[in-house]
């Protein structure tokens, strides 16, 4: 890994070609930063912050947290049992493993934004379709991540549970879940944090919460409110990250 080998030259060359190609495709040009002043001027319009609407924006932030929390928690509740069917060592049958993995891949491949757009037609505007969109995508993501944790779990306790004559599913559950639980929590809090950002995007299509306010304030040039929105978003992400760390610390 560390020492350079002749065989790695080809990999290195491929990487350079890919980087060059991507730079061209994305019109990557650092000289464009010469208009840096524009950004400074724009950001200057954000201040002083308009704190008059803070109570209302705080309430909208709570709505965003609620969307993200339910989206992640329900996602986890559905993903957890599915992940046992999507792991090679616990699925019991190759067919079940393949079908479950395919289903999870499908859910993962559809962005929350697209789920949101589809659900709008049935559920209308508001936070509910946003929650469901996040749940669906999170089932796909968490299901895959947890199934990989299950596959990497120590086989010893599973063997011990087989040896005491436990039912297979009970044995698997007890032998594996305690082993992977801290990592499951890590994944959950990471997905919760991602869901906060996702719910901002879903605000663009009427999902409600601070994301929708941010979108409205931007479109109506109320930059002094935009700065309050951004500050609240940053605070939410930092608090959730901190809480996640603390809870995981306690569990370990």
């Amino acid at each position: 890994m560390v020492w350079f080998k002749k065989g790695q030259f080809f990999v290195f060359l491929t990487l350079i070609v890919l980087v060059g190609f991507s730079l061209r495709m994305t019109e990557f040009d650092l000289s464009k930063f010469q208009d840096f002043e524009n950004m400074g001027d724009f950001l200057a319009k954000w201040f002083p912050m308009n704190t008059e609407s803070l109570p209302y924006l705080f309430q909208e932030s709570l709505l965003t947290i609620a969307i993200a929390f339910l989206g992640s928690l329900f996602g986890l509740l559905f993903a957890l049992p599915l992940s046992f069917f999507a792991a090679r060592n616990t699925s019991g049958h190759r067919f079940i493993f393949t079908i479950t993995r395919f289903f999870l891949s499908f859910l993962r491949s559809v962005p929350e934004f697209v789920f949101g757009l589809i659900l709008l037609t049935t559920l209308g505007l508001g936070p509910f379709p946003a929650v469901i969109a996040i749940v669906l995508h999170n089932i796909g993501v968490l299901g895959k991540l947890i199934s990989e944790l299950i596959e990497a779990a120590d086989k010893g306790p599973m063997e011990a549970m087989s040896a005491v004559g436990a039912q297979r599913w009970i044995g698997n559950l007890f032998a594996i879940l305690p082993q992977i639980w801290p990592n499951v929590l890590s994944q959950f809090f990471y997905r919760f944090e991602v869901a906060i950002r996702t719910s901002l995007i879903l605000g663009l299509i009427g999902g409600g919460g601070i994301g929708q306010q941010l979108f409205i304030h931007f479109k109506t040039f109320q930059y002094q409110l935009v700065s309050v929105d951004v500050l609240l978003i940053m605070l939410m992400v930092i608090i959730i990250d901190y809480m996640g760390g603390k809870i995981r610390e306690k569990v370990i």
Binding site: D154, G156, P157, A160, V164, A166, I170, G171, F174, P178
Partner: peptide, 23 residues
């Protein structure tokens, strides 16, 4: 077993009680 095969993050008594799972 050589590596004991106990269930981590569970207590002594909880691990012992898993011996009754078959019953």
């Amino acid at each position: 077993f050589q590596q004991f095969n106990l269930i981590p993050r569970m207590s002594v008594v909880q691990n012992i009680l898993t011996g009754l799972f078959g019953y």
